[in-house]
Design a binder for these strands. Structure first.
Lengths: 220, 220
DNA sequence: CAAAAAAATTAGGCAATCCAAAGAAGAAGT
DNA sequence: ACTTCTTCTTTGGATTGCCTAATTTTTTTG
């Protein structure tokens, strides 16, 4: 398993390949690699039994592929947690650093790190950390954007994107924050929210509100 | 700079390339790569101004190459220190783990790690950690094997080799231990030593005694 | 000092992974 | 349903870094 193959598995996983078919194009875009190269690599992964490739229809992960991908995500998020909690990195900056480290992390190291960090449940931006045997609970897919005015909900996770995380950091929003939605401004305007116990309204851009997921059980 | 090029620089550094010419053969042996491939890679490194290659005579590092190599060694040893001190790895097991991590370590990460570890001076088996700007003090080259009977000296560093470190771990010898040499057994027999304050003699194999360096100022 | 041995270089190949461009398949609009 | 656009696959070519085998240079040795 080369680092590049791992990157393919991970992006397929992140695009939802564990429960649906993802397109060649999205992989190509996600990795910044030409579509032709993706087809090529995908057929290799299919030969190894890690993905199922239906030409022109899409690509999805086998159980084996899912397990590998979950392990990578686990390692990635353990490193992110380490960087924030122990090395005091800003939570917007950890992604690229963890990107490299995850490929050089043995299972033994991941376990040791997990112990050292005291078995964290989620990474700094709210992504659940899969268990050592590759199990992972389904993450929330309920968008902050879809919460109705007046509702109070808990933020669960943010997409792992540098720009977004920097923006949210500036707005002082974190996973686990409890917020109330005041209103949705029209024409793709911002979502106006308030943090629990505070009075200052916060404007969350339309786009950002589509990249933030909330705890589904906190909605009626 | 690819990881493989980094490995070449590092092995050249470790073989003494910062102050003398090292042979193609030793690099080939050290990396487990065919001699022909070494020649090829070395000329690329020479093109980039990292090494000086005098055909048939040897290879040495330029100042630029020295700096790169020292940075790698620094990262490697910071990780080793982290693994032992924070993750409670056995000091014989850290080498291979650090080998991978060092190539994925940004300068920023190295600095953060250095702070977290409280600016360690040496890695677990005694190698000095170069500073962030690539400076490194010359390491001791005085062999334990060359200490005369009756002398008391301080162990400084062990070569970074798994087998050796496991062996020394079993013998309960560590860098900074103060020991007295009792006698050299003939015919490449073991060196008999005693740790300061203890009475039990310890046999250190002939070969191991040639892979342990002592503090030069503790010899007369 | 010449023959043998050791070490280094050169040459031809192979595998992995990328790209660009051409052609095939599927989806979308009128 | 037919044309057009988009997406996907195929093909041919580049690059990196490795290997083996052959050749050249240097060192060692009788």
């Amino acid at each position: 398993m080369t680092p590049m193959k791992e990157d393919y598995l991970k992006i397929i996983f992140e695009l939802g390949g564990s429960h649906k078919k993802v397109s060649n194009k999205d992989i190509s875009l996600g990795l910044g690699i030409a579509a032709g190269s993706v087809t090529e690599m995908v057929s290799k992964l299919a030969d190894e039994g890690l993905v199922i490739h239906e030409p022109y229809a899409g690509i999805s992960l086998t159980d084996e592929g899912k397990k590998h991908a979950a392990e990578l995500v686990r390692k990635h998020r353990l490193w992110e947690t380490f960087l924030v909690e122990k090395l005091h990195y800003n939570f917007a900056d950890v992604h690229s650093e963890a990107e490299g480290l995850e490929h050089q992390t043995s299972d033994r190291l991941a376990t040791a790190l997990d112990n050292f960090l005291n078995h964290p449940q989620a990474c700094p931006h709210g992504g659940v950390i899969p268990s050592a045997n590759g199990e992972f609970p389904e993450a929330s897919h309920v968008l902050l954007a879809d919460v109705e005015d007046g509702q109070t909900v808990t933020l669960e996770r943010f997409l792992d994107n540098h720009e977004l995380l920097t923006y949210l950091d500036e707005l002082n929003l974190r996973p686990d924050d409890k917020i109330t939605v005041i209103r949705h401004e029209p024409f793709e305007g911002p979502l106006v929210i308030k943090k629990a116990g505070e009075d200052v309204p916060i404007n969350v851009s339309y786009k950002a509100s589509h990249n933030i997921f909330i705890q589904p059980n906190s909605m009626k």
